[in-house]
């Protein structure tokens, strides 16, 4: 309920302040199990991907995010869990006995849709960094679950890391074709990398320095 109200506001804000240019929205899975893999430029990434989903599907869409950031205080943790629906992942992996991705596995078994940002951190806005391999472990464990690459541009201009000032920009969201586990982790990661490459070349983006 709280999540629905929150996202009604987000939907309005996203549509009015930002404005989205979504290509192939129909490829975006709203029923699980499925994995959405997106590049990461801004806190808005999760908001925008969630805002594209129908309201009554939100409870089954789970963004995966860093435990050290989103669960850093009790208040933050409560919001992250109940409003944003985040699955926490330990980045440092202090406790080796628990698989940091266990929450992701459980969610997929419950037919949820995961939203993953394999760049790990938002980093330099509008620049893609190397992808972390975590996603390949999940895909290996669930070889039949479709992996959907999503490339976003402009969100890092609107709200880059380290800034709280939202400046309106139109943002591009390019959804790619789903693919499955390729058989081994290295080829899976190259495939994913290539998918992002192709999507990012669909348009000439204005330079931003």
């Amino acid at each position: 309920m709280l999540q629905k109200i929150f996202y009604i506001f987000i939907k309005i804000a996203v549509l009015f302040l930002l404005g989205l240019n979504v290509r192939r929205k129909e490829l975006l899975p709203d029923t699980g199990p499925a994995i959405i893999v997106a590049n990461h430029n801004s806190h808005l990434d999760t908001m925008v991907l969630m805002a594209l989903m129908p309201l009554d599907r939100l409870k089954d869409i789970k963004p995966v995010a860093a435990a050290d950031y989103f669960f850093s205080s009790p208040r933050m943790a409560w919001i992250s869990e109940h409003v944003l629906g985040i699955i926490p992942v330990e980045r440092s992996g202090a406790d080796k006995s628990i698989d940091p991705l266990q929450g992701c596995y459980d969610a997929l078994e419950q037919n949820k849709v995961l939203i993953l940002f394999p760049e790990g951190s938002r980093g330099e806005p509008e620049k893609m960094t190397d992808l972390k391999k975590g996603v390949s472990y999940i895909a290996e464990r669930f070889p039949d679950v479709p992996v959907v690459p999503v490339f976003t541009h402009g969100l890092g201009k609107a709200l880059p890391k380290g800034s709280w000032l939202l400046v309106p920009f139109f943002c591009d969201i390019f959804v790619g074709d789903a693919f499955n586990w390729t058989g081994d982790r290295a080829t899976f990661m190259t495939t994913l990398q290539e998918r992002f490459q192709t999507l990012s070349k669909e348009k000439n983006f204005a330079s931003w320095e």
């Binding site: 201009k157 400046v167 920009f169 204005a206 320095e209």
Partner: peptide, 19 residues
């Protein structure tokens, strides 16, 4: 204006100016 700013090259330092 939003379309224009999204289309042209802009500078990161000018975010405030755009606002």
């Amino acid at each position: 204006l939003k379309e224009y700013f999204s289309m042209i090259p802009t500078r990161r330092a000018d975010r405030r100016v755009l606002l």
